[in-house]
């Protein structure tokens, strides 16, 4: 059996991972909420962001936390362009086409990274990577604590952006009723692209927060993307608070499953929750919108 301290540490570690998961899921849920599409390229885009963090660190010596400043707008722009010039035109507005186009993008991006960087796993050697903060009886990783705080802050910022600004209002209008929004003069294609850009910007921030303690290889996005799907489905498609709570919950579940089932089986808890949620609550949260 495990002592309460170990379990408590697993829970807190889970919460810290979960906040970053939430940030990844946030991008996904935002895109779903507005465009009503499931973006299968989300994981590959995260991998791309993580490689970008690694590249600017290795090549320019840019600290990952500072890299947030250039990478966030860069990924916003890239996301904007991908939606506006690839996904939008290629899918002819058909749902199953979008599914296939984002799948194709994910395959292309992932394997472009594999071709460019090979399959080696890479890490950053920051001097704070292994620093520990004592928190009562708990020993917590400093960069992960920073990640937790930053992820929550970004979530709040995004929420403020959507609820307080004109852009946010336009996004919410398009999410509710795109035809009506286009009638009052909102450029729907532009709003779609902005939303997709915001989703990618979330990934850039998440990548910067992950890299000090995590590693990157071309397949890493796959590990995150199903987790992110689970969070989005669990929290309710399109819901920002849902993504945050779902992320924290899944982080804890993963951490505890890892503790009790071992590393190789740890992730299975997440997938089982995912399947169960999909099967048991198909209506209400989703189902009607196929």
């Amino acid at each position: 059996m495990y002592s309460p301290a170990i379990i408590a540490e697993a829970v807190v570690n889970g919460l810290m991972t979960g906040a970053v998961y939430a940030l990844i899921a946030l991008g996904l849920t935002l895109v779903y909420g507005v465009l009503h599409i499931i973006n299968f390229a989300h994981g590959a885009l995260l991998t791309a962001a993580m490689f970008a963090v690694w590249v600017v660190y290795e090549a320019l010596g840019l600290d990952p936390y500072l890299a947030i400043l250039p990478l966030t707008p860069l990924f916003f722009g890239m996301g904007y362009a991908v939606q506006r010039f690839v996904i939008g035109p290629a899918s002819h507005g058909n749902d199953s086409n979008i599914l296939l186009v984002t799948l194709g993008l994910s395959i292309a991006i992932e394997n472009a990274l594999l071709a460019g960087f090979r399959s080696d796993t890479r890490t950053l050697n920051t001097d704070y990577g292994f620093q520990i903060v004592e928190f009562g009886p708990l020993l917590l990783s400093k960069p992960r604590l920073i990640g937790f705080g930053a992820a929550i802050s970004v979530t709040v910022l995004l929420w403020l952006l959507l609820s307080r600004t004109d852009t946010g209002k336009a996004i919410r209008a398009v999410a509710k009723e795109k035809f009506g929004a286009s009638l009052v003069g909102i450029d729907v294609a532009h709003v779609y692209a902005v939303t997709f850009g915001l989703g990618c910007a979330c990934l850039a921030v998440a990548a910067c927060l992950l890299m000090p303690t995590f590693y990157v290889n071309p397949r890493i996005g796959q590990a995150f993307v199903l987790v992110a799907f689970t969070i989005v489905v669990l929290g309710g498609m399109g819901s920002i608070p849902g993504a945050l709570l779902g992320g924290l919950f899944i982080g804890v579940v993963e951490s505890l499953c890892g503790l009790f089932l071992g590393d190789s089986l740890g992730q299975i808890g997440i997938f089982l929750i995912f399947i169960l949620v999909l099967l048991v609550r198909p209506t209400g949260m989703f189902g009607a919108k196929a």
């Binding site: 290629a90 993008l105 395959i107 292309a108 991006i109 992932e110 990274l113």
Partner: peptide, 16 residues
């Protein structure tokens, strides 16, 4: 990965 990269692009192109 270069072949799969082409596959991915081809999937997008086929749908489009």
């Amino acid at each position: 990965g270069i072949d799969l990269m082409v596959f991915g692009g081809l999937l997008v192109a086929a749908v489009a």
